[in-house]
Design a protein around this nucleic acid. Structure first.
Lengths: 260, 260
DNA sequence: TCCTGTCTTTTGGTCCAACAAATAAACAGC
DNA sequence: GCTGTTTATTTGTTGGACCAAAAGACAGGA
Protein backbone atom coordinates (compact mmCIF):
# COMPACT_ATOMS: atom_id res chain seq x y z
CA UNK A 1 0.00 0.00 0.00
CA UNK A 2 1.57 3.21 -1.08
CA UNK A 3 1.41 6.35 0.90
CA UNK A 4 -0.98 8.17 -1.40
CA UNK A 5 -3.54 5.40 -1.21
CA UNK A 6 -3.21 5.51 2.55
CA UNK A 7 -3.67 9.22 2.48
CA UNK A 8 -6.85 9.00 0.47
CA UNK A 9 -8.21 6.27 2.69
CA UNK A 10 -7.62 8.41 5.72
CA UNK A 11 -9.34 11.31 4.00
CA UNK A 12 -12.35 9.19 3.26
CA UNK A 13 -12.47 8.16 6.88
CA UNK A 14 -12.46 11.79 7.80
CA UNK A 15 -15.34 12.52 5.47
CA UNK A 16 -17.90 10.69 7.59
CA UNK A 17 -18.76 13.03 10.41
CA UNK A 18 -22.09 12.80 12.15
CA UNK A 19 -24.21 9.91 10.98
CA UNK A 20 -26.79 11.05 13.49
CA UNK A 21 -28.01 13.98 11.45
CA UNK A 22 -30.94 12.84 9.40
CA UNK A 23 -32.57 16.21 9.01
CA UNK A 24 -34.18 16.49 5.60
CA UNK A 25 -32.73 19.96 5.20
CA UNK A 26 -29.18 18.81 5.87
CA UNK A 27 -29.67 15.87 3.58
CA UNK A 28 -30.88 18.22 0.86
CA UNK A 29 -27.88 20.50 1.31
CA UNK A 30 -25.62 17.54 0.67
CA UNK A 31 -27.71 16.27 -2.21
CA UNK A 32 -27.73 19.62 -3.94
CA UNK A 33 -24.00 19.95 -3.53
CA UNK A 34 -23.58 16.47 -4.96
CA UNK A 35 -25.87 17.40 -7.82
CA UNK A 36 -23.65 20.37 -8.60
CA UNK A 37 -20.58 18.20 -8.51
CA UNK A 38 -21.85 15.35 -10.64
CA UNK A 39 -23.32 17.65 -13.26
CA UNK A 40 -20.10 19.63 -13.34
CA UNK A 41 -21.94 22.89 -12.91
CA UNK A 42 -19.78 25.98 -12.76
CA UNK A 43 -20.17 29.50 -11.44
CA UNK A 44 -23.11 31.17 -13.10
CA UNK A 45 -24.99 28.00 -13.96
CA UNK A 46 -28.51 27.72 -12.64
CA UNK A 47 -29.88 24.94 -10.48
CA UNK A 48 -33.25 23.34 -11.18
CA UNK A 49 -36.26 25.18 -9.84
CA UNK A 50 -37.28 24.73 -6.23
CA UNK A 51 -40.22 22.59 -7.27
CA UNK A 52 -38.02 20.41 -9.46
CA UNK A 53 -35.50 19.94 -6.70
CA UNK A 54 -38.29 18.99 -4.35
CA UNK A 55 -39.66 16.46 -6.77
CA UNK A 56 -36.24 15.07 -7.62
CA UNK A 57 -35.23 14.60 -4.01
CA UNK A 58 -38.63 13.78 -2.59
CA UNK A 59 -38.96 16.87 -0.47
CA UNK A 60 -41.40 19.69 -0.04
CA UNK A 61 -40.69 23.10 -1.46
CA UNK A 62 -40.27 24.66 1.98
CA UNK A 63 -37.63 22.11 2.83
CA UNK A 64 -35.84 22.87 -0.41
CA UNK A 65 -36.03 26.55 0.36
CA UNK A 66 -34.51 26.03 3.80
CA UNK A 67 -31.67 24.11 2.22
CA UNK A 68 -31.15 26.87 -0.32
CA UNK A 69 -31.02 29.42 2.49
CA UNK A 70 -28.17 27.43 4.01
CA UNK A 71 -26.34 27.26 0.68
CA UNK A 72 -26.94 30.96 0.29
CA UNK A 73 -25.51 31.65 3.73
CA UNK A 74 -22.45 29.67 2.69
CA UNK A 75 -22.09 31.81 -0.41
CA UNK A 76 -22.47 28.76 -2.64
CA UNK A 77 -25.54 29.96 -4.48
CA UNK A 78 -27.23 33.25 -5.05
CA UNK A 79 -30.92 33.03 -5.69
CA UNK A 80 -32.74 35.44 -7.93
CA UNK A 81 -36.46 35.68 -8.57
CA UNK A 82 -37.64 33.89 -11.66
CA UNK A 83 -34.12 32.65 -12.51
CA UNK A 84 -33.71 30.46 -9.49
CA UNK A 85 -30.57 29.56 -7.62
CA UNK A 86 -27.38 30.16 -9.56
CA UNK A 87 -23.95 29.05 -8.49
CA UNK A 88 -22.10 31.93 -6.92
CA UNK A 89 -18.49 32.84 -6.36
CA UNK A 90 -19.26 34.59 -3.12
CA UNK A 91 -18.00 31.79 -0.95
CA UNK A 92 -14.85 33.58 0.13
CA UNK A 93 -16.90 36.64 0.89
CA UNK A 94 -19.20 34.60 3.08
CA UNK A 95 -16.24 33.20 4.94
CA UNK A 96 -14.87 36.68 5.43
CA UNK A 97 -18.16 37.98 6.64
CA UNK A 98 -18.54 35.16 9.08
CA UNK A 99 -14.98 35.49 10.30
CA UNK A 100 -15.23 39.24 10.74
CA UNK A 101 -18.19 38.81 12.97
CA UNK A 102 -16.31 36.70 15.47
CA UNK A 103 -13.47 39.23 15.54
CA UNK A 104 -15.15 42.16 17.10
CA UNK A 105 -13.98 45.35 15.49
CA UNK A 106 -12.41 47.36 18.26
CA UNK A 107 -9.19 49.22 18.97
CA UNK A 108 -7.91 46.14 20.81
CA UNK A 109 -8.47 43.91 17.82
CA UNK A 110 -6.89 46.51 15.55
CA UNK A 111 -3.71 46.28 17.55
CA UNK A 112 -3.97 42.55 17.52
CA UNK A 113 -4.35 42.41 13.76
CA UNK A 114 -1.35 44.66 13.30
CA UNK A 115 0.62 42.25 15.47
CA UNK A 116 -0.51 39.41 13.25
CA UNK A 117 0.52 41.31 10.18
CA UNK A 118 3.93 41.97 11.64
CA UNK A 119 4.50 38.29 12.26
CA UNK A 120 3.37 37.34 8.79
CA UNK A 121 4.83 40.14 6.72
CA UNK A 122 8.15 39.98 8.52
CA UNK A 123 8.22 36.21 8.34
CA UNK A 124 7.87 36.04 4.59
CA UNK A 125 10.83 38.34 3.93
CA UNK A 126 13.34 35.56 3.56
CA UNK A 127 11.25 33.70 1.06
CA UNK A 128 10.59 36.76 -1.04
CA UNK A 129 14.24 37.72 -1.05
CA UNK A 130 15.21 34.23 -2.11
CA UNK A 131 12.53 33.58 -4.70
CA UNK A 132 11.01 36.78 -6.02
CA UNK A 133 11.94 37.68 -9.58
CA UNK A 134 12.75 41.15 -10.81
CA UNK A 135 9.38 41.15 -12.55
CA UNK A 136 7.63 40.39 -9.26
CA UNK A 137 9.30 43.35 -7.61
CA UNK A 138 8.57 45.61 -10.56
CA UNK A 139 4.94 44.68 -10.25
CA UNK A 140 5.06 45.69 -6.60
CA UNK A 141 6.29 49.07 -7.80
CA UNK A 142 3.37 49.30 -10.21
CA UNK A 143 0.86 48.47 -7.51
CA UNK A 144 2.48 50.93 -5.16
CA UNK A 145 2.29 53.67 -7.76
CA UNK A 146 -1.50 53.37 -7.81
CA UNK A 147 -1.72 54.74 -4.29
CA UNK A 148 -0.75 58.16 -5.64
CA UNK A 149 -3.99 58.30 -7.61
CA UNK A 150 -5.30 60.16 -4.58
CA UNK A 151 -8.96 59.31 -5.04
CA UNK A 152 -10.09 59.72 -1.49
CA UNK A 153 -9.60 57.78 1.71
CA UNK A 154 -11.40 54.60 0.68
CA UNK A 155 -9.50 54.30 -2.55
CA UNK A 156 -6.16 54.92 -0.89
CA UNK A 157 -6.90 52.28 1.74
CA UNK A 158 -7.79 49.81 -0.98
CA UNK A 159 -4.55 50.47 -2.83
CA UNK A 160 -2.61 50.17 0.39
CA UNK A 161 -4.17 46.80 1.09
CA UNK A 162 -3.45 45.65 -2.44
CA UNK A 163 0.21 46.39 -1.96
CA UNK A 164 0.43 44.33 1.20
CA UNK A 165 -1.67 41.61 -0.36
CA UNK A 166 0.76 41.47 -3.27
CA UNK A 167 3.59 41.20 -0.79
CA UNK A 168 1.95 38.26 0.91
CA UNK A 169 1.20 36.73 -2.47
CA UNK A 170 4.93 36.61 -3.15
CA UNK A 171 5.28 34.17 -0.28
CA UNK A 172 3.66 31.73 -2.69
CA UNK A 173 1.51 30.05 -0.08
CA UNK A 174 -2.20 29.76 -0.70
CA UNK A 175 -3.09 29.09 2.90
CA UNK A 176 -1.27 32.15 4.13
CA UNK A 177 -2.84 34.29 1.45
CA UNK A 178 -6.33 33.03 2.21
CA UNK A 179 -5.87 33.74 5.90
CA UNK A 180 -4.50 37.18 5.20
CA UNK A 181 -7.41 38.00 2.94
CA UNK A 182 -9.78 36.94 5.67
CA UNK A 183 -8.65 39.98 7.57
CA UNK A 184 -9.18 42.34 4.66
CA UNK A 185 -12.14 44.20 6.19
CA UNK A 186 -10.31 44.86 9.42
CA UNK A 187 -7.02 45.74 7.75
CA UNK A 188 -8.68 48.08 5.29
CA UNK A 189 -10.52 49.69 8.17
CA UNK A 190 -7.28 50.29 10.01
CA UNK A 191 -5.86 51.90 6.92
CA UNK A 192 -8.96 53.97 6.36
CA UNK A 193 -8.93 55.39 9.85
CA UNK A 194 -5.21 56.05 9.66
CA UNK A 195 -5.61 57.95 6.42
CA UNK A 196 -8.70 59.75 7.64
CA UNK A 197 -6.74 61.21 10.50
CA UNK A 198 -4.39 62.82 8.03
CA UNK A 199 -3.97 62.09 4.37
CA UNK A 200 -0.51 60.64 3.94
CA UNK A 201 -0.61 58.85 0.62
CA UNK A 202 2.75 60.22 -0.32
CA UNK A 203 4.30 58.98 2.92
CA UNK A 204 2.82 55.53 2.45
CA UNK A 205 4.11 55.45 -1.09
CA UNK A 206 7.59 56.38 0.07
CA UNK A 207 7.72 53.73 2.77
CA UNK A 208 6.45 51.08 0.39
CA UNK A 209 9.10 52.12 -2.08
CA UNK A 210 11.75 51.73 0.57
CA UNK A 211 10.43 48.27 1.35
CA UNK A 212 10.58 47.32 -2.31
CA UNK A 213 14.10 48.63 -2.56
CA UNK A 214 15.13 46.56 0.43
CA UNK A 215 13.76 43.51 -1.35
CA UNK A 216 15.49 44.43 -4.60
CA UNK A 217 18.83 44.72 -2.83
CA UNK A 218 18.09 41.46 -1.00
CA UNK A 219 18.58 43.14 2.34
CA UNK A 220 16.55 41.09 4.76
CA UNK A 221 17.51 43.11 7.80
CA UNK A 222 16.36 46.35 6.24
CA UNK A 223 13.15 44.71 5.08
CA UNK A 224 12.32 43.40 8.53
CA UNK A 225 13.00 46.76 10.08
CA UNK A 226 11.01 48.73 7.53
CA UNK A 227 8.00 46.43 7.66
CA UNK A 228 7.94 46.44 11.42
CA UNK A 229 8.18 50.18 11.63
CA UNK A 230 5.62 50.64 8.87
CA UNK A 231 3.05 48.46 10.60
CA UNK A 232 3.69 49.99 13.97
CA UNK A 233 3.20 53.41 12.48
CA UNK A 234 -0.19 52.31 11.21
CA UNK A 235 -1.63 52.10 14.69
CA UNK A 236 -0.31 55.31 16.14
CA UNK A 237 -3.81 56.69 16.15
CA UNK A 238 -5.00 54.20 18.72
CA UNK A 239 -2.12 54.92 21.07
CA UNK A 240 -4.50 56.49 23.55
CA UNK A 241 -6.26 53.19 24.07
CA UNK A 242 -5.00 51.82 27.35
CA UNK A 243 -7.51 49.28 28.59
CA UNK A 244 -6.47 45.81 29.67
CA UNK A 245 -7.03 43.80 26.53
CA UNK A 246 -5.48 46.38 24.31
CA UNK A 247 -2.46 46.49 26.53
CA UNK A 248 -1.97 42.76 26.43
CA UNK A 249 -2.44 42.69 22.71
CA UNK A 250 -0.04 45.56 22.41
CA UNK A 251 2.77 43.61 23.99
CA UNK A 252 2.34 41.05 21.24
CA UNK A 253 1.79 43.79 18.74
CA UNK A 254 5.26 45.06 19.35
CA UNK A 255 6.93 41.71 19.14
CA UNK A 256 10.07 41.45 17.10
CA UNK A 257 10.25 45.15 16.51
CA UNK A 258 13.75 45.57 17.86
CA UNK A 259 15.66 48.04 15.82
CA UNK A 260 18.56 46.58 13.89
CA UNK B 1 -12.46 65.36 17.81
CA UNK B 2 -10.19 62.78 19.33
CA UNK B 3 -8.90 59.77 17.50
CA UNK B 4 -11.14 57.28 19.29
CA UNK B 5 -14.27 59.16 18.36
CA UNK B 6 -13.08 59.26 14.80
CA UNK B 7 -12.40 55.56 14.93
CA UNK B 8 -15.87 54.77 16.15
CA UNK B 9 -17.45 57.02 13.57
CA UNK B 10 -15.57 55.21 10.85
CA UNK B 11 -16.70 51.90 12.28
CA UNK B 12 -20.30 53.03 12.26
CA UNK B 13 -19.94 54.12 8.65
CA UNK B 14 -18.66 50.66 7.90
CA UNK B 15 -21.62 49.05 9.62
CA UNK B 16 -24.16 50.09 7.02
CA UNK B 17 -23.86 47.68 4.15
CA UNK B 18 -26.61 47.02 1.66
CA UNK B 19 -29.78 49.00 2.29
CA UNK B 20 -31.21 47.37 -0.84
CA UNK B 21 -31.95 44.02 0.76
CA UNK B 22 -35.51 43.96 1.96
CA UNK B 23 -35.96 40.23 2.05
CA UNK B 24 -38.14 39.19 4.96
CA UNK B 25 -35.75 36.39 5.81
CA UNK B 26 -32.76 38.71 5.97
CA UNK B 27 -34.75 41.20 7.96
CA UNK B 28 -35.66 38.47 10.41
CA UNK B 29 -32.05 37.38 10.74
CA UNK B 30 -31.15 40.91 11.76
CA UNK B 31 -34.15 41.26 14.02
CA UNK B 32 -33.39 38.05 15.84
CA UNK B 33 -29.78 39.06 16.30
CA UNK B 34 -30.94 42.38 17.63
CA UNK B 35 -33.35 40.62 19.94
CA UNK B 36 -30.47 38.59 21.31
CA UNK B 37 -28.40 41.69 21.83
CA UNK B 38 -31.04 43.83 23.48
CA UNK B 39 -32.17 41.09 25.81
CA UNK B 40 -28.57 40.35 26.70
CA UNK B 41 -29.00 36.66 26.00
CA UNK B 42 -25.93 34.52 26.47
CA UNK B 43 -24.77 31.14 25.24
CA UNK B 44 -27.25 28.49 26.25
CA UNK B 45 -30.24 30.80 26.53
CA UNK B 46 -33.24 29.88 24.45
CA UNK B 47 -34.94 32.09 21.91
CA UNK B 48 -38.72 32.36 21.79
CA UNK B 49 -40.49 29.62 19.90
CA UNK B 50 -40.78 29.81 16.15
CA UNK B 51 -44.45 30.64 16.44
CA UNK B 52 -43.75 33.40 18.97
CA UNK B 53 -41.00 34.89 16.80
CA UNK B 54 -43.34 34.89 13.86
CA UNK B 55 -46.02 36.68 15.83
CA UNK B 56 -43.57 39.15 17.38
CA UNK B 57 -42.00 40.11 14.07
CA UNK B 58 -45.07 39.76 11.88
CA UNK B 59 -43.77 36.88 9.83
CA UNK B 60 -44.92 33.42 8.95
CA UNK B 61 -43.43 30.44 10.68
CA UNK B 62 -41.77 29.21 7.49
CA UNK B 63 -40.05 32.54 7.10
CA UNK B 64 -38.87 32.35 10.69
CA UNK B 65 -37.58 28.87 10.05
CA UNK B 66 -35.62 30.03 7.02
CA UNK B 67 -34.05 32.76 9.12
CA UNK B 68 -33.19 30.25 11.82
CA UNK B 69 -31.54 28.01 9.22
CA UNK B 70 -29.29 30.92 8.30
CA UNK B 71 -28.45 31.58 11.94
CA UNK B 72 -27.81 27.88 12.34
CA UNK B 73 -25.49 27.87 9.34
CA UNK B 74 -23.62 30.74 10.95
CA UNK B 75 -23.26 28.73 14.13
CA UNK B 76 -25.12 31.39 16.09
CA UNK B 77 -27.91 29.17 17.25
CA UNK B 78 -28.41 25.48 17.60
CA UNK B 79 -31.96 24.34 17.35
CA UNK B 80 -33.11 21.41 19.39
CA UNK B 81 -36.49 19.76 19.15
CA UNK B 82 -38.97 20.88 21.74
CA UNK B 83 -36.46 23.29 23.34
CA UNK B 84 -36.25 25.61 20.41
CA UNK B 85 -33.33 27.65 19.18
CA UNK B 86 -30.67 28.12 21.82
CA UNK B 87 -27.69 30.40 21.50
CA UNK B 88 -24.68 28.38 20.50
CA UNK B 89 -20.94 28.74 20.82
CA UNK B 90 -20.36 26.88 17.59
CA UNK B 91 -19.64 29.98 15.61
CA UNK B 92 -15.93 29.24 15.33
CA UNK B 93 -16.71 25.73 14.27
CA UNK B 94 -18.98 27.03 11.53
CA UNK B 95 -16.22 29.30 10.31
CA UNK B 96 -13.79 26.40 10.33
CA UNK B 97 -16.18 24.20 8.44
CA UNK B 98 -16.81 26.87 5.88
CA UNK B 99 -13.15 27.65 5.50
CA UNK B 100 -12.15 24.02 5.12
CA UNK B 101 -14.68 23.71 2.37
CA UNK B 102 -12.85 26.19 0.17
CA UNK B 103 -9.48 24.60 0.92
CA UNK B 104 -9.78 21.32 -0.84
CA UNK B 105 -8.15 18.57 1.16
CA UNK B 106 -5.44 17.21 -1.06
CA UNK B 107 -1.74 16.38 -0.89
CA UNK B 108 -1.00 19.75 -2.48
CA UNK B 109 -2.92 21.61 0.19
CA UNK B 110 -1.24 19.53 2.87
CA UNK B 111 2.13 20.73 1.69
CA UNK B 112 0.80 24.24 1.51
CA UNK B 113 -0.49 24.11 5.05
CA UNK B 114 2.83 22.82 6.31
CA UNK B 115 4.46 25.77 4.59
CA UNK B 116 2.06 28.07 6.37
CA UNK B 117 2.85 26.47 9.67
CA UNK B 118 6.55 26.87 9.08
CA UNK B 119 6.13 30.58 8.49
CA UNK B 120 3.98 31.03 11.56
CA UNK B 121 5.65 28.71 14.02
CA UNK B 122 9.12 29.90 13.06
CA UNK B 123 8.03 33.50 13.12
CA UNK B 124 6.77 33.44 16.67
CA UNK B 125 10.02 32.08 18.11
CA UNK B 126 11.44 35.46 18.99
CA UNK B 127 8.35 36.54 20.82
CA UNK B 128 8.13 33.32 22.82
CA UNK B 129 11.79 33.49 23.74
CA UNK B 130 11.43 37.08 24.87
CA UNK B 131 8.14 36.82 26.72
CA UNK B 132 7.34 33.26 27.77
CA UNK B 133 7.60 32.56 31.48
CA UNK B 134 9.07 29.42 32.97
CA UNK B 135 5.54 28.37 33.86
CA UNK B 136 4.49 28.70 30.22
CA UNK B 137 7.28 26.40 29.12
CA UNK B 138 6.56 23.94 31.89
CA UNK B 139 3.00 23.79 30.67
CA UNK B 140 4.27 22.99 27.21
CA UNK B 141 6.12 20.08 28.79
CA UNK B 142 2.91 18.93 30.42
CA UNK B 143 1.00 19.08 27.18
CA UNK B 144 3.77 17.29 25.36
CA UNK B 145 3.77 14.51 27.94
CA UNK B 146 0.18 13.68 27.08
CA UNK B 147 1.21 12.43 23.67
CA UNK B 148 2.79 9.40 25.34
CA UNK B 149 -0.64 8.29 26.48
CA UNK B 150 -0.59 6.24 23.29
CA UNK B 151 -4.33 5.98 22.81
CA UNK B 152 -4.38 5.37 19.11
CA UNK B 153 -3.73 7.48 16.06
CA UNK B 154 -6.58 9.95 16.50
CA UNK B 155 -5.70 10.67 20.09
CA UNK B 156 -2.01 11.11 19.30
CA UNK B 157 -2.86 13.51 16.48
CA UNK B 158 -5.06 15.51 18.80
CA UNK B 159 -2.30 15.75 21.41
CA UNK B 160 0.18 16.72 18.74
CA UNK B 161 -2.08 19.52 17.57
CA UNK B 162 -2.61 20.70 21.11
CA UNK B 163 1.13 21.08 21.55
CA UNK B 164 1.48 23.21 18.46
CA UNK B 165 -1.63 25.16 19.38
CA UNK B 166 -0.11 25.88 22.77
CA UNK B 167 3.01 27.06 21.04
CA UNK B 168 1.04 29.46 18.89
CA UNK B 169 -0.91 30.58 21.94
CA UNK B 170 2.35 31.74 23.50
CA UNK B 171 2.66 34.28 20.71
CA UNK B 172 -0.13 36.06 22.57
CA UNK B 173 -1.98 37.15 19.46
CA UNK B 174 -5.66 36.32 19.15
CA UNK B 175 -5.80 36.83 15.40
CA UNK B 176 -2.94 34.49 14.77
CA UNK B 177 -4.41 31.88 17.06
CA UNK B 178 -7.82 32.11 15.44
CA UNK B 179 -6.29 31.71 12.01
CA UNK B 180 -4.19 28.78 13.12
CA UNK B 181 -7.21 27.08 14.63
CA UNK B 182 -9.04 27.51 11.37
CA UNK B 183 -6.67 24.96 9.93
CA UNK B 184 -7.17 22.47 12.71
CA UNK B 185 -8.99 19.87 10.61
CA UNK B 186 -6.33 19.87 7.93
CA UNK B 187 -3.43 19.94 10.37
CA UNK B 188 -4.85 17.14 12.45
CA UNK B 189 -5.39 15.15 9.29
CA UNK B 190 -1.76 15.61 8.29
CA UNK B 191 -0.73 14.36 11.69
CA UNK B 192 -3.12 11.46 11.54
CA UNK B 193 -1.84 10.23 8.23
CA UNK B 194 1.76 10.68 9.36
CA UNK B 195 1.15 8.63 12.46
CA UNK B 196 -0.88 6.05 10.62
CA UNK B 197 2.07 5.31 8.36
CA UNK B 198 4.10 4.36 11.39
CA UNK B 199 3.38 5.05 15.02
CA UNK B 200 6.03 7.45 16.17
CA UNK B 201 4.60 9.03 19.29
CA UNK B 202 7.89 8.66 21.09
CA UNK B 203 9.76 10.42 18.28
CA UNK B 204 7.27 13.27 18.24
CA UNK B 205 7.58 13.59 21.98
CA UNK B 206 11.36 13.76 21.73
CA UNK B 207 11.36 16.42 19.05
CA UNK B 208 8.82 18.49 20.94
CA UNK B 209 10.99 18.18 24.04
CA UNK B 210 13.99 19.43 22.09
CA UNK B 211 11.94 22.38 20.88
CA UNK B 212 10.90 23.21 24.44
CA UNK B 213 14.50 22.98 25.58
CA UNK B 214 15.58 25.36 22.85
CA UNK B 215 12.98 27.81 24.13
CA UNK B 216 14.07 27.31 27.73
CA UNK B 217 17.66 28.09 26.83
CA UNK B 218 16.46 31.06 24.78
CA UNK B 219 18.23 29.70 21.71
CA UNK B 220 16.32 31.18 18.79
CA UNK B 221 18.53 29.63 16.14
CA UNK B 222 18.05 26.14 17.50
CA UNK B 223 14.31 26.74 17.80
CA UNK B 224 13.99 27.86 14.20
CA UNK B 225 15.98 24.92 12.98
CA UNK B 226 14.11 22.36 15.04
CA UNK B 227 10.68 23.67 14.11
CA UNK B 228 11.54 23.78 10.45
CA UNK B 229 12.89 20.27 10.44
CA UNK B 230 9.99 19.00 12.51
CA UNK B 231 7.40 20.39 10.13
CA UNK B 232 9.25 19.25 7.07
CA UNK B 233 9.44 15.78 8.53
CA UNK B 234 5.68 15.80 8.91
CA UNK B 235 5.12 15.67 5.19
CA UNK B 236 7.64 13.06 4.21
CA UNK B 237 4.79 10.73 3.40
CA UNK B 238 3.56 12.88 0.54
CA UNK B 239 7.01 13.15 -1.02
CA UNK B 240 5.89 11.01 -3.95
CA UNK B 241 3.43 13.66 -5.00
CA UNK B 242 5.01 15.50 -7.90
CA UNK B 243 2.26 17.30 -9.76
CA UNK B 244 2.50 20.95 -10.62
CA UNK B 245 0.61 22.57 -7.80
CA UNK B 246 2.23 20.45 -5.19
CA UNK B 247 5.62 21.32 -6.57
CA UNK B 248 4.97 25.02 -6.50
CA UNK B 249 3.61 24.80 -3.02
CA UNK B 250 6.59 22.73 -2.02
CA UNK B 251 9.01 25.45 -2.95
CA UNK B 252 7.26 27.69 -0.47
CA UNK B 253 6.94 24.81 1.90
CA UNK B 254 10.67 24.61 2.17
CA UNK B 255 11.19 28.30 2.69
CA UNK B 256 13.51 29.36 5.46
CA UNK B 257 14.66 25.87 6.18
CA UNK B 258 18.32 26.57 5.69
CA UNK B 259 20.33 24.74 8.25
CA UNK B 260 22.14 26.99 10.73
C1' DT C 1 -41.98 12.02 51.10
C1' DC C 2 -40.01 10.48 47.02
C1' DC C 3 -39.70 7.83 43.04
C1' DT C 4 -41.78 6.05 38.73
C1' DG C 5 -44.40 5.33 34.85
C1' DT C 6 -48.15 7.39 32.01
C1' DC C 7 -50.43 11.10 29.73
C1' DT C 8 -51.05 15.61 27.93
C1' DT C 9 -49.34 19.48 25.68
C1' DT C 10 -46.02 22.04 23.53
C1' DT C 11 -42.69 22.43 19.94
C1' DG C 12 -39.85 21.65 16.03
C1' DG C 13 -39.90 19.01 11.25
C1' DT C 14 -42.10 18.54 7.05
C1' DC C 15 -45.33 19.27 3.60
C1' DC C 16 -49.14 21.44 0.99
C1' DA C 17 -51.93 25.12 -0.92
C1' DA C 18 -52.45 29.71 -1.94
C1' DC C 19 -51.41 34.32 -3.25
C1' DA C 20 -48.15 38.29 -4.24
C1' DA C 21 -44.26 40.09 -6.67
C1' DA C 22 -40.80 39.88 -10.02
C1' DT C 23 -39.21 38.93 -14.49
C1' DA C 24 -37.89 36.15 -18.50
C1' DA C 25 -39.97 34.97 -22.60
C1' DA C 26 -43.40 35.22 -26.01
C1' DC C 27 -45.97 38.33 -28.67
C1' DA C 28 -48.27 42.14 -30.97
C1' DG C 29 -47.75 46.56 -33.22
C1' DC C 30 -45.20 49.65 -35.81
C1' DG D 1 -36.03 44.80 -36.97
C1' DC D 2 -37.25 47.21 -32.99
C1' DT D 3 -40.24 48.34 -29.03
C1' DG D 4 -43.71 48.12 -25.74
C1' DT D 5 -47.12 44.84 -23.80
C1' DT D 6 -48.80 40.62 -22.22
C1' DT D 7 -48.24 36.12 -20.39
C1' DA D 8 -46.48 32.45 -17.92
C1' DT D 9 -43.22 30.81 -14.82
C1' DT D 10 -40.68 31.16 -10.69
C1' DT D 11 -39.37 32.85 -6.30
C1' DG D 12 -41.15 35.25 -1.81
C1' DT D 13 -44.19 34.77 1.86
C1' DT D 14 -47.89 33.17 4.56
C1' DG D 15 -51.17 30.09 6.97
C1' DG D 16 -52.53 25.70 7.98
C1' DA D 17 -52.10 20.84 8.64
C1' DC D 18 -50.08 16.71 10.51
C1' DC D 19 -46.36 13.96 12.72
C1' DA D 20 -42.88 12.71 16.05
C1' DA D 21 -40.29 13.85 19.93
C1' DA D 22 -39.81 15.51 24.28
C1' DA D 23 -40.79 18.40 28.35
C1' DG D 24 -43.89 18.86 31.92
C1' DA D 25 -48.02 17.51 34.54
C1' DC D 26 -50.02 13.93 36.96
C1' DA D 27 -51.32 9.86 39.21
C1' DG D 28 -49.94 5.75 41.69
C1' DG D 29 -47.05 3.02 44.55
C1' DA D 30 -42.89 2.17 47.84
Amino acid sequence: MNTDAMLLAALAANAVQEPARVSAVDRLVDQIRELVRERGLVIGDALPTERDLGEQFQAGRNTVREALQVLKAYGIVEVRPKIGAVLSDRHEEAVRKLFAFQNDISPASFIDVQGYRRIVESGIGDHIILHATAADLDQLDAINARILGNNGVDDAARCDFEFHEALVTLANNRTLLANYRLLQPVITQIMRVGKATRPVQIDTFEVHAQIINALKSRDRVAYAYLISRHLEHGLQFVETEQNGRAHIARSSGRMGSSRP
